[in-house]
């Protein structure tokens, strides 16, 4: 032991250390995404499959929408919202796994910021979502997506998507912490994920759904976010209907969700970890 420990504890404020801890955990999670083949398939390949599935199989005639630019211009903004929300499943699985393996317990014996495990997980999933958005954008353009909203609006749309997915991921963090293991965590997310993404305006127009489903499908947050994203991405096209207040509604939903789900997940974390 040649180096004295007293000299090496770096002097930073506790807030800066907390940020450093979050980034350390986030970096570690990102590395896992790259190194576990199944995780990589889950986060990257699956969204591409969805694009191809809806563009060339369901979208080749089975689904018709009354939208300018054809179905592909309707689909890609929706897929962007859908894949970022599906990403939250990874938040639940990752936390359940860390808990199961005792890593979170080990972290508890370190002088790190306690919340860094939770925050680091949601931040790394945000990072993965950014990667997925870039990929979907590229794949989208390759299959014929031609938005008219301009670059600035496109980026704004992506930011709204990321904000909403990030806020929602705290709810899935709660699921991951409540689940007995990672398999259960995955199973528990499906009853949440499917109604949110499929009973929405992501793939089809809500007006084509049965009447009893339409109120939910119209006003649930994912539909609002999708409307906002679609309007921003393709809004310069004069044929795209106005999104009304969707942009504000999407942001309000995001803020509301994290105000509710953040403390919920935090409380759960304190209880189990």
């Amino acid at each position: 032991m040649t180096i004295a420990p007293e000299t090496v504890h770096a002097a930073k404020s506790s807030l800066r250390w907390a940020v450093s801890d979050v980034l350390t955990i986030a970096r570690r999670n990102m590395l896992a995404i790259v190194r576990i083949p199944t995780a990589l398939v889950f986060s990257v390949l699956q969204p591409i499959m969805f694009v191809l599935l809806f563009r060339y199989i369901f979208g080749a005639g089975a689904i018709t929408v009354n939208a300018p630019g054809g179905y592909v211009n309707y689909l890609i903004p929706g897929i962007i919202v859908q894949t970022t929300i599906f990403g939250a499943v990874g938040t639940a699985i990752g936390l359940a796994e860390d808990l199961q393996r005792g890593l979170i317990e080990r972290f508890r014996a370190l002088p790190m910021a306690r919340m860094a495990v939770l925050a680091g997980r949601t931040v790394s999933d945000l990072g993965r979502n950014i990667l997925v958005l870039v990929i979907i954008t590229l794949v989208g353009f390759a299959v014929g997506f031609r938005p008219h909203g301009g670059v600035v609006n496109y980026i704004f749309a992506c930011l709204i998507t990321l904000l909403f997915a990030y806020c929602l991921s705290w709810g899935f963090a709660y699921v991951g912490l409540a689940a007995p293991n990672s398999e259960a965590a995955q199973a528990m997310t499906f009853p949440l994920i499917f109604p949110l993404t499929f009973a929405s305006g992501i793939f089809v127009q809500v007006s084509s759904m049965p009447g009893w489903l339409q109120p939910f499908a119209t006003y649930q947050p994912v539909s609002e976010v999708t409307k906002a994203v679609r309007y921003l991405m393709d809004g310069a096209n004069p044929l795209v209907p106005s999104a009304g207040n969707s942009i504000w509604v999407a942001i309000l939903w995001s803020v509301g969700l994290i105000a509710l789900l953040g403390p919920l997940a935090t409380a759960k974390y304190k209880k189990v970890a």
């Binding site: 090496v8 504890h9 770096a10 930073k12 955990i25 370190l110 002088p111 790190m112």
Partner: peptide, 8 residues
């Protein structure tokens, strides 16, 4: 672990 121990 070193980084989470707040070491240089």
């Amino acid at each position: 672990i070193g980084s989470l121990n707040h070491l240089e």
